[in-house]
Amino acid sequence: MSQQSEPIVDIQGLNKWYGALHVLNDVDLTVASGACVVVCGPSGSGKSTLIRCVNGLGSYQKGTLRLAGTTLGVNARETAAARRQTGMVFQSFNLFPHLTVLSNCTLALQRVAGRSRAEAEHIAMSHLEKVRIPEKAKSYPGQLSGGQQQRVAIARALCLNPRLMLFDEPTSALDPEMIKEVLDVMVALARDGMTMICVTHEMGFAREVADQVVFMDGGCILDRAPARDFFGGSGHPRSRHFLNTVLKH
């Protein structure tokens, strides 16, 4: 099987419990190369837990998860190699506060990808330009606005040239006026053909670029549909209800 035809993420029957709490319940999800999948649902529905499993930040008890053709957790070396093909953007940015914007981006390039400092800085600058913030390369994260920090976080995740980008509520911690600058970067990324899984409530974003919208509640995927059908109102009653609440906001 060639890498092109195989989905980047292939999840079958994934189950996870926190004690008695069933946080992921028989979740199946495949993400094809180049696709943009938006995962939405009420808080506590398991959507963040799901994407944290994809890059190995979270664990699960039952089911299989294949990432870039590798079943995670079988072989440590292959797992690490597969994880390296993912980039992640967090709700709370998680930039390293003691490092400059540029050093935030070059750290993994130097320590993980083994690039020289000059190479790493060159690559990092190109990504900072892509997120339109190269002039802040020498600043510290604390000197940046939330929107700027999140764009840096996206650039940092892009530096290792991932095949899959994971977004965990990237705009939830932002002031309203800063949401757009981050979404614009994400839209451009999706249009460039990046494979993305985005946990987000930004339905405008989903409508614009999502190939598929997945609705989760209570650890289950209740609804999955191409974006146009999802917003067309043909879905599960719970997802229609959710959609109504979110869109009224």
Partner: peptide, 27 residues
């Protein structure tokens, strides 16, 4: 040190040793 710091280090595939040296210890 917020938990997100070591998570971000893991998401960037830094080794545990590198995460301690470059992310945790300086903070």
């Amino acid at each position: 040190i917020p938990k997100g710091q070591s998570e971000a280090a893991r998401a960037l595939s830094l080794s545990r040793r590198d995460a301690v040296i470059y992310v945790i210890a300086p903070q």
